[in-house]
């Protein structure tokens, strides 16, 4: 058996073993009580779960990311030289993000840095916008809508997502382009003399991104608000609270885990979105994800692409952890 194959089989098993040992350790510390993992699930199912989760964790999560991390620290080389004397660890790819090509005259690689911060900044705005749109809807669905209306609302929310993301993005393009439906209506109604360039001004991009991840916000919010005891809202009202106070100090603190998980999902997804920026982005806007895409498929510079992707990933994780810290939540609570 070759060394590679041994690794492929042995490492997931090792991961499974680590999982089992971890649970043993927790048990010894007294963190878990009750019947053990294998007692509860039986040996066969227990083994299957441990090995399956081990494989999954290893192949889908750990291995590809590790490969990316490794790749991002290597120079771009033709296949013949890979593994050769020139294949050394280097920070070149990260340097490029900050300072650009060694032949450029500028001090900083403003083009990419700007695109990066624009992506992050706009993603934050879109997350907040999404929260503002979804919170009233989720509250209505969770606390005041009769069952029949709730079903209709849920269907109306879900059905549009049967259309795939690219098609939805193009639909926005058709709606918002200079000769599109919205401009025609506005001009036909005599409200405008010349069409508004929605796409060039990125209105289309923001709309597309906000819409694309609406459900990711609605459902965590709905779940969180739904579990709030109605009596608490009434108690607050009875004690004299105006409606905004009830939302700010009773509903929202209760829904905090839902708000945090919705926000982190929407933020992560919009910062990493590719289709919407490609289809709906204005000509003057450079989003960060298309740059990453170009590193891989236009420049054929996979190490640099890997470095860029990791920078984005790292920024997102830092942002999410910062938000959790701000809300005083632990990771476990969002998953509730």
């Amino acid at each position: 058996m070759s060394g590679g194959l041994t690794l492929v089989v042995a490492l997931p098993l090792l991961a499974a073993l680590i999982l089992i040992l971890l649970s043993r350790l927790e048990r010894r510390k007294g963190a878990i009580a009750g019947p053990g993992f294998f007692q509860r699930n039986g040996v066969a199912v227990g083994l299957y779960l441990a090995v399956a989760v081990g494989f999954w964790a290893f192949f889908i999560i750990v291995l590809p990311q590790l490969a990316m991390v490794d790749l991002s620290f290597r120079p771009k080389l033709p296949p013949s030289q890979m593994g050769g004397p020139k294949d050394i660890f280097t920070l070149e790819n990260y340097r490029y993000f900050l300072f650009g090509s060694t032949t450029s005259t500028a001090n900083w690689n403003w083009l990419h840095i700007k695109a990066f911060f624009l992506s992050i900044g706009v993603s934050i705005l879109i997350t907040l916008l999404n929260l503002a749109i979804c919170y009233p809807l989720a509250f209505h669905m969770a606390q005041s809508a009769p069952v029949a209306r709730l079903r209709v609302l849920l269907l109306l929310l879900i059905i549009p997502y049967w259309v795939n993301e690219i098609l939805r993005a193009f639909a926005f393009r058709v709606l918002l382009s200079s000769g599109g439906v919205v401009n025609k209506l506005l001009m036909g109604g005599g409200l405008l003399d010349a069409p508004i360039d929605f796409l060039g001004n990125d209105v289309g991009l923001y709309m597309g991104l906000s819409y694309a991840y609406l459900l990711m916000m609605i459902f965590p919010l709905y779940n969180a608000i739904e579990s709030l005891d109605r009596n608490q809202i009434e108690a607050a009202r009875d004690l004299g609270a105006p409606w905004w106070h009830i939302h700010a100090f009773v509903v929202m603190p209760h829904a905090k885990p839902g708000i945090a998980s919705g926000c982190t999902l929407v933020f992560m997804l919009s910062a990493g979105a590719l289709a919407a920026p490609l289809v709906l982005g204005g000509p003057r806007t450079l989003w960060f994800t298309p740059i990453v895409y170009d590193r891989f498929y236009q420049a054929f510079n996979w190490p640099q692409g890997a470095a860029y992707a990791l920078i984005l990933l790292f920024a997102c994780i830092v942002f999410v952890l910062a938000v959790l810290r701000m809300f005083r939540l632990s990771l476990g609570e969002i998953a509730r």
């Binding site: 009596n231 608490q232 108690a235 004690l239 609270a241 105006p242 100090f249 603190p253």
Partner: peptide, 26 residues
């Protein structure tokens, strides 16, 4: 009027003092 609910409906994310002071705060 002030109503005391069957399940009391105290606010679980607030302390006892904050609960009692809620009506005064608003």
């Amino acid at each position: 009027t002030a109503l005391i609910f069957q399940n009391l409906a105290l606010f679980p994310m607030m302390t006892v003092a904050e609960n009692i002071g809620y009506g005064l705060r608003v």
